[in-house]
Amino acid sequence: MTVFNAQSTADEVLAGCDLAGQTILITGGASGLGQETARAMAARGARVVLAARDEGKLAAAADAIRAEIPGAEVETLVVDLASLASVRAAGEEAASRFPVIDVLINNAGVMACPQGTTADGFETQFGTNHLGHFLLTKYLLPSVEAGSAKRIVNLSSRAHHRAGVDFSDLDFTQRPYDKWEAYGQSKTANILFTRALQQRLAPRGIDVFAVHPGGIATNLGRHLTQDDLKELVARMQDATAAGASAFKTIPQGAATTAWAATAPELAGKGGVYCEDCHIAAQDDADPHGGVRSYAYDDEAAERLWTVSEELVGESFRP
């Protein structure tokens, strides 16, 4: 039973951890939750690898961590998850530079952006949030298998409540584009990917977790309009009135990721969706918490796996 909750911070979760000797790679590590997760883990002795698309922002984030934590071992990796060519190049580079990765944290993402496509023609949110991480994980899996912690954490969101995966129209070419539905679809995909990957990796002692970090003000919300922000605030107020967690600070938002990546009580319990530092209950009604049953549909998870292999043009057979 976890002693942590919605108000816990990453530093509090990691207070008793010794991460010396571990290598932890975090996508979206140049800012926000990714940078905070890396900072907290570096403070416990981990070698952290920050992965993101902007080399300048990566360098600044790495310098900030080193300035706060003298002696911190921080490395960077340039990857644009919206380009399969970039993912392949980064995957090959990372496999060479980091033959051992103890924990892989697929943290990066885009949210509620205007309609658009990735470099390969996929709807931006599905292509970036799911397909980019699907392919990157394939390239990094041998390094994870060589590690000691053997964990993969996929950042999802409570926004998966908004939509399942529409296999008949993944790219919104046959239906009107809705930025929140598209985001919800990509976040459900993150959970389904977690389920399918866990089924394949459990026999090797690797655990895979999906995480909802909470509602946090980071640059993930850079595409939001004033009306969007007002709606989010109203939702958070409703959640608070119902006894659920409200907006979190960035250190609080990084806590569930840190917990899923390190908690010894989670060993052998992968394939689940976590929120507020606990394993969420399956729930199709509660608007303020829980994981929807369609996100735990293992037939859908296998279908997504097959479709994802087809879309990236590579077989991912761990």
Rank of each mutant, 00 (worst) to 15 (best):
V144S: 04
A196E: 14
R162W: 14
W180F: 14
S168P: 00
S168W: 01
S157Y: 04
V208H: 06
H130C: 09
Q185K: 01
T194D: 03
K150D: 00
F134T: 06
A112D: 10
N154R: 04
D169G: 06
N107A: 03
S148Y: 01
V144T: 03
A149C: 12
R97H: 09
I152L: 13
N154S: 13
P114S: 11
P99I: 09
V103S: 08
D171G: 01
A94T: 10
H130M: 11
A119W: 01
I152F: 03
Q198H: 14
L170Q: 02
A95S: 14
N107T: 07
A119R: 15
A90S: 05
R158P: 00
Q125A: 00
R88L: 10
F172A: 01
A94M: 05
L131F: 13
L140M: 07
Q199Y: 05
V87I: 11
R151H: 08
A146S: 15
P176R: 14
G132H: 12
E93D: 15
D120T: 08
S156N: 06
A119Q: 15
Q125V: 00
T124W: 05
A108W: 11
C113H: 02
L140H: 05
Y139R: 09
T173S: 13
W180V: 00
D166R: 15
G132N: 07
T173A: 14
T173H: 13
N106Q: 10
T173Y: 02
A202M: 11
A182N: 01
F172N: 00
N106A: 12
V165S: 02
V110Q: 00
G205P: 12
R204E: 10
R200C: 05
D207P: 04
A94C: 10
F98C: 02
L136G: 09
F122P: 05
I191K: 13
P114C: 13
R175E: 05
V100S: 03
P142Y: 09
D102A: 12
A146M: 07
L104W: 04
K138R: 15
